[in-house]
Design a protein around this nucleic acid. Structure first.
Lengths: 143, 143
DNA sequence: ACTTTTTACTTGCAAAATGCAAGTAATGTT
DNA sequence: AACATTACTTGCATTTTGCAAGTAAAAAGT
C-alpha cells in the first residue's frame, strides 16, 4: 500500500516555500551533500562524519527525506544489518541548489574545501554534468 | 575586558554548512524572497504578507540577517517610525540560490506562481541579470 | 556455540527555537 | 488631545533539537 500523503498543508503555494519546508533546517542539505559529493550511503557514515548530527535527529531526517521522495532506502545484500540510502532523481536534481549555496558561501565567507569551490567555479555545468553522470547508474550500488 | 566577541563557532568549514547555518531555517529565505522579488522593505510588509510569520520571529530573523551582512536597515526619511530593510550585495547574490530552489520545487512539486517559474525557466541568466539590474541603484530607496 | 562488536535505530529528558497573544514606545494623523 | 500606525518586546505554551543511554538484529571473533 502506497504511503499516505504527508503534510498536505503548505503555508503557501510559492515554490520557494515548498523548498524551504522540505530543506529548511540545519541538517537535511548536509545529509544530501554527503550522499551527493562524498558518496555516503549508510547510517553510520552520516553519523560519524560531517558536522556531528545526533542519532535521533539523523533518523528523523532520513525519514522525512524519504517521505519527500528525495532519498530512498534499501538493504545491503552483503550485510543484512546495513541499510543503503541513496538519492532519488529528485534528490540528484538538488545539485544546482547545493552548488549555488556553496559558491555563495565561498564568495562571502571564509570557508574550507577550496578544491571543490574552484572546481565549481571553473566550470559549473561540467561539474553538474559530472554529478549526474556519477549518479546515472545508481540502481545497483557499487562495490 | 577586551572584545568578548561571541565566537560564531562553525560546525565545520564546509561552505555548504556556512550557508545552512545562515539560511537553514523556516523563514530567512522567505524574507529574502520578499525583498528580492516583491520589493518589500518594511517590517509591516513582511509581517502582513507571505506565509504569516510571527512578529517576534520576524524581529529575530531581521536581526540575524543583519548580523550576517545579508540585509541592512535604515530609516525612512519621510516617516521616522518606519525602518527600511534592504538587501546588501551579499544578499542580492543569493538570487541564484533562490532561483535554483524555485526551479527545483516547481519541477517536483505542485506549486503556484507559474509565471515566475516560466520566466526563470525561459532564460535563467536574463532573469538573474534583471534582478541585479533592479538592485543596482539601491542606495536610495525608490518612491 | 557463545560472547563481543557492529549497525541502525529508539527512548527519555533537558535545552533551544518557534509560535501565539498581548503589551509598549515612538511617531504620525485627525 | 485622542487615536492609529509602525516596529518592535515580553510572557508563556508548544515544538524541535540535542544529548546520553538503551535495544534488537545481524555479523564477527574465539
Amino acid at each position: 500500500m502506497p504511503g499516505k500523503k504527508v503534510t498536505p498543508r503548505r503555508r503557501s503555494g510559492c515554490p520557494l516555500n515548498a523548498s524551504v519546508e522540505m530543506l529548511g533546517d540545519r541538517w537535511s542539505l548536509l545529509i544530501i551533500r554527503d550522499m551527493m559529493l562524498r558518496g555516503f550511503r549508510s547510517y553510520k557514515e552520516f553519523l560519524d562524519s560531517h558536522e556531528g548530527i545526533a542519532t535521533n535527529i539523523l533518523a528523523g531526517r532520513l525519514r522525512t527525506l524519504q517521505a519527500h521522495g528525495i532519498i530512498s532506502a534499501g538493504r545491503d545484500p552483503s550485510d543484512a544489518r546495513k541499510r543503503i540510502y541513496r538519492l532519488t532523481p529528485k534528490g540528484i536534481n538538488l545539485a544546482p541548489v547545493l552548488t549555488e549555496m556553496v559558491l555563495w558561501a565561498a564568495a562571502h565567507e571564509e570557508t574550507g574545501n577550496q578544491p571543490l569551490v574552484r572546481q565549481m567555479r571553473a566550470d559549473k555545468e561540467k561539474f553538474l554534468a559530472a554529478i549526474r553522470e556519477r549518479w546515472a547508474g545508481t540502481a545497483i550500488p557499487r562495490k
